[in-house]
Nucleic acid binder design. Structure first.
Lengths: 221, 221
DNA sequence: GAGCGATGGAACGCTACCGTATCGACGCCA
DNA sequence: TGGCGTCGATACGGTAGCGTTCCATCGCTC
């Protein structure tokens, strides 16, 4: 079924035979899955519920995916693996603000802001989900972070040793907390100010500790 | 039943009559709830599962709470509403590092790191849970933030207008993202460095509009 | 010492889903 | 044009949890 679903997703028809999975049914199911995920979460999501919401028979679902896990993984990983563009704005602060805008727009969408935390929580207890999200999101993220930081280093805005993982924490953490966890509305100018703060945070690691503190021993690069 | 549960929770005995809710049974149920929450999440948590895990009859559970929602709310809000001490370390950076240590220790506990994101995700779709967590966590948080920032302002480390909510985002966001979302292990010295970065972030908000981009490297202290 | 009432256990009828099977209808492909 | 295979529908037996009820037991309070 992984095969069949793939074929449908890619919008090609099977080479031989006839009578083909209908594209519109597949689309309806996909939509229903995302809506059900937002409404009841992964834990409570049921095949019957999805079929009901999509207005199709259970058969149509089982013909495409063999289990709820497989179905959800295929659908969300497709959405999650899109990479963001990452234009070069000319400054670290500008780059960060751009990323924050993109992320905040995404997290303000009702479906996304319910589905993402739910799946991340589920990932903590289901290794397969964890692995898939890891692949889809983290790799992407790290790549983006390295690009963004590489630029800043080239510009002389950051020291060469800056850790991309920590940078992701500093950039994504606050906006994610605000929108997906605390769910507090953003005041005017919030993203812009946050960008400034985060840029300052990245620009001033280690530098000021007057104590004999340990340094980051791990993660080279 | 709220009454009976309350009585048991407060560890007082009913004034009249006899034959009382057993404290050890109540404790066993509480433990089972937290374990079930971590294992399967709120969405899949079932009364039967809790009773099974606690080694008690369903009856014992229903005698204390009338529904899974009420049960979970009572149990988690009790745990969540404890406030952290917040010693004055003498500097903003020190205060932040202390908070980060406390938070990171809490989030590294297996149960907490699974239950908290799960409940927060659930809160996004269940108003009662959202409200309870809001009460238990956010109020506490804001108070702590105001205290911490008030001190820094008094020391002259921060300008007077600093927004406590944004401060929470900057302080909690990165460590929460790291531990509860990305679930990446912390390298040596991470918390200390993060504290420095966050202090720098807090020290340089808004400045972007008025001042020509000061880089906070040697500013504080 | 008496009895109230909580205890675990078992069973109740009920609902929701599971995953599978079978049906006639019909559209697409060879 | 023929037939393959998907379509929605419906039904299947099975599992799980719901919330309630009844039970004999036994510890605590008076």
């Amino acid at each position: 079924m992984g095969y069949i679903a793939l074929v449908a997703a890619v919008r090609k028809r099977p080479a031989a035979g006839a009578a083909v999975l209908r594209e519109d049914v597949t689309t309806a199911i996909r939509q229903a899955v995302t809506q059900e995920l937002a409404a009841v979460g992964y834990g409570r999501l049921s095949i019957e519920g999805v079929a009901r919401r999509a207005g199709v028979g259970k058969t149509a679902v089982y013909r495409r995916w063999s289990s709820k896990l497989e179905m959800v993984l295929e659908i969300v990983s497709e959405v999650a693996s899109q990479s963001l563009p990452l234009l070069d704005t000319g400054s670290l602060r500008g780059d960060i603000e751009m990323v924050l805008h993109v992320v905040s727009r995404a997290l303000r969408h009702r479906l996304a802001s319910q589905i993402i935390p739910d799946l991340l929580a589920e990932a903590a207890r289901n290794p397969k989900i964890g692995h898939t999200l890891q692949e889809a999101l983290r790799a992407n993220q790290r790549q983006a972070s390295e690009l963004l930081i590489g630029r800043a280093v080239a510009r002389g805005e950051l020291p060469a040793g800056t850790d991309p993982d920590t940078a992701v924490d500093l950039i994504i953490g606050p906006i994610y907390w605000r929108l997906a966890v605390a769910r507090t509305p953003l005041p005017q100018g919030y993203v812009s100010e946050l960008a400034t703060s985060v840029a300052a945070a990245l620009g001033a690691p280690i530098s000021q500790s007057s104590f004999p503190n340990e340094r980051t021993s791990g993660s080279s690069r």
